[in-house]
Amino acid sequence: MKDRGRLLMFFLIGSEAFFFIALIIAYVYYRNFTGATDMVAHFLNVKRATILTAGLVLSSFTLIMSKRNLLKGRWKMAKLYMGGTIILAAVFLGGQMMEYIELYHKQVTISKNVFGSSFFTLTGFHGLHVIMGLIAISLLFGFSFGKFKVLTVAGIASVEAYWHFVDIIWLCVYTYVYITPLL
């Protein structure tokens, strides 16, 4: 079966989607029923999160462009766009780490209260998915140099689907964690 890998990726994405839905519901519940809405406005850096969100959304575009160029045999452009995706993902992770460090200095930790536990669980689990996507894209990038080019072409559709899933999940997380408490 030619599309077995892609089908398996969609099964993985479906199961992960249910897990993220549960984490988002738990986060919203704890934020709304523990008085943590004020903590969001006071402790979280919405401006940075907005910039990082824009970068993560842009990384989906660069991966789309990489795939288009790959399928047309334009390897230099495909590598350039894929490298851009890797850089944008790394910047996102760096920004998330900066936020974690700032929250730690403000005494907001995973063990301090329910808000901290649900925030770090939700955003940390998403960060783990960004890391896994970054590894997959980096592997494809490495394969694109040399005799493993066929692996790059075969794997790009599955990796692209996973990366778009990671971006869509972040848009949901960003909306519920950073935006709705300010409304």
Rank of each mutant, 00 (worst) to 15 (best):
H129A: 03
V114N: 09
L58C: 01
Y174N: 06
L182T: 10
I156Y: 08
I21S: 13
L171G: 11
I24P: 05
M9P: 04
M82D: 01
N32R: 14
N113G: 04
F20T: 06
I24W: 05
F43L: 04
G124S: 06
V46L: 10
Y178T: 11
L93A: 07
L103Q: 11
H126S: 04
K67M: 13
K149Q: 15
R31G: 03
S59N: 05
L58R: 00
V153G: 01
Y29M: 14
L171P: 03
V130K: 12
F43N: 15
T175K: 08
Y178C: 01
K147I: 12
M1F: 11
G14L: 04
L80N: 10
T123M: 14
G146T: 13
R4Q: 15
N45V: 09
L93T: 01
F141M: 06
F11C: 02
I137W: 02
Y81V: 00
A161I: 03
M65L: 15
F10S: 07
K106E: 15
M65H: 05
A22G: 14
V159A: 02
A54W: 08
H105E: 12
L52Q: 13
T85D: 00
S144Y: 07
F11M: 01
L70I: 07
H42W: 12
G55Q: 00
G127W: 05
A90F: 02
K72G: 07
G83H: 04
V40C: 07
F125R: 01
I131S: 12
G73H: 08
I13S: 00
M1Q: 11
L58Y: 01
L58S: 02
Y104K: 14
Y178M: 03
L103M: 12
I101H: 11
G73S: 06
S66N: 03
A22P: 09
A36T: 06
Y27L: 09
N32Y: 09
A49V: 01
T34K: 00
F143M: 15
V159R: 02
R74M: 05
S118E: 09
A136Y: 04
G127T: 06
L183D: 14
A78D: 06
G35T: 09
G35R: 11
S117E: 13
A54P: 02
F10D: 06
L8D: 09
M77L: 15
T180H: 07
F18G: 07
K47Q: 14
F120S: 12
